[in-house]
């Protein structure tokens, strides 16, 4: 895309992309740290993740103010309008990702007071997949790569399948040893949170499609199984 005659307009649009990139980076780091806190039973790290969520919230506020200002002052149209609306929407998605990461960290602190249980590994396994998807969709955003975004969108099914398997595993584990119910219930919520992060990554992929192509991403997103405990 060539440049605007008014240079400061380009700078403002670039600024939006930058904040989103920073938010995305933070959300990824928060999720990674929360998982590390879980696997290493590190309550200090978990506490830092919980406290760190405020920074993502601040960036969301910044995006909101900045986009409202741009809408009022620039009266954007076409791709510029889509760029600005997309930034506003993606910032809310990433803010939610941050919330879920913080919740995983919070629950890991509770788990640290309980005896360790085996399915932690499976939760981390699920999270690895979601981390990949989140990273891919953020890269796709920076590169404005619609095809990559569509691939991310299609991978949500993998997350759902893995989540369903994990759900069964946790139930089996709890039935075998009811003393693990508290820990496993927390793990189940963690898994749900992580699965939700995958959904938000999918939403970002849809928004990116709208940003670049100008039309909604068509078709039905793979639905999670009815067995997901909701």
């Amino acid at each position: 895309m060539s440049e605007h005659t008014v240079k400061s307009y380009d700078e403002e649009l670039a600024h939006l992309t930058n904040i989103i990139a920073r938010m995305g980076g933070m959300a990824e780091a928060q999720l990674a740290a929360a998982l590390q806190a879980l696997s290493r039973r590190d309550s200090d790290l978990a506490a830092r993740v919980v406290a760190g969520d405020a920074r993502i919230d601040e960036l969301e506020q910044e995006i909101q103010q900045f986009t409202v200002r741009m809408l009022a002052l620039r009266q954007p149209v076409a791709s510029d309008l889509r760029h600005i609306v997309a930034a506003l929407k993606i910032s809310s998605e990433l803010e939610r990702v941050g919330d879920y990461a913080a919740n995983v960290a919070k629950r890991s602190m509770v788990l640290n007071h309980l005896p360790a249980v085996k399915p932690v590994t499976a939760v981390i396994h699920l999270a690895k997949l979601v981390q990949e998807i989140l990273k891919d969709v953020l890269d796709a955003y920076i590169e404005r790569d619609v095809e990559k975004a569509v691939r991310v969108w299609n991978r949500d099914e993998e997350v759902d399948d893995m989540y369903t398997g994990l759900f069964r595993e946790l139930i089996t584990y709890m039935m075998e040893d009811p003393r693990t119910i508290t820990a496993c219930t927390h793990l189940m919520f963690m898994a749900k949170n992580i699965e939700r992060i995958g959904d938000h990554a999918t939403n970002v992929a849809e928004i990116l499609h709208f940003l670049v192509v100008g039309t909604p991403l068509k078709g039905n997103r793979p639905k999670s199984s009815e067995l997901d405990g909701e």
Partner: peptide, 19 residues
Amino acid sequence: IFTNPQHPLTQGYITGRFG
């Protein structure tokens, strides 16, 4: 035209990226 113009020239003109 103002949300999703199809031609690059239209896009360039209405967003102020012309010439």
